[in-house]
Amino acid sequence: MVEKTKDVARHVRLYYWYLRANWLSLMAYPVPFITMNLAGVVYSLGSVATVWVLFTRIHAIGDWTFPQVLLIYGLSIFSRSLFHLFWVELMSVSWMVRTGHIDRLLVRPLNPLYQVVAGYLDDDDWGELLTALILIWTSLGMLGQRTVWNILWILVAGISGSLIFASMHIVGNAMAFFTIESSGFTSLAWTIDEFARYPADIYGKGVRTVITWVIPVAFASFYPAQLVFGNGALMRMALATPVIALMIFACAYWFWTKAMDCYQGVGN
């Protein structure tokens, strides 16, 4: 137990040094860094414009009012951007397996998944985070719910949500260990994320059960938002969010270790 704790502490401490190296690498090309981020802002404006145009036309989805829908949408983008910023290198697992770069990570005394994730910092997705914050702030205002507790809760929900998304993508990208080519699974994971964008009760009963209990993406936006709405019936579900997130993450991690055992390596 003491050993385990020490090991975790070591990984946490090292994260700073990885971040530092990543940051310095980004700064090695200052001009692309700036242009990429400017492009990132345009990219996010593109998604905001899409949401905005959509909501100038539709004022409710099912039984949910416009501000409620906006909060759910904003929360899903928030969780997703947190995931995106810190876990983006997961998407390279397939490439690492194909080129054999993963071998390098396996001969170091650190957790391989940690090394994959810590090895790179996203350079152009800060705009998505900004978009999410704007959407959440606006919707909270419309709902008259800009309280400290709500903001704290949204932070917890965002982190939990990012763990849920990360779990999805860990499983999707771990498929590369079996199949080498895993882009289909990666994009499947991206697609599953889309469930979180809209209120979960627009889906049929079967789908709703699946996205609540099997692939719990509904916990990345829909259920946590219920706490802000003060929706008595679903309040308990809302509070379960962090627990569900940790549980699904544990499952995904277990799958990752199993997949790694099947890894063959490439010839060189």
């Binding site: 190296a21 310095l24 690498s25 090695a28 090309y29 054999g100 770069h101 071998d103 390098r104 001969v107 060189n268």
Partner: peptide, 14 residues
């Protein structure tokens, strides 16, 4: 220790 020829473990840009 492991070294694989032609596959560097140096941080590329630093």
């Amino acid at each position: 220790g492991l070294m694989m020829g032609q596959r560097t473990q140096l941080l590329w840009d630093l």
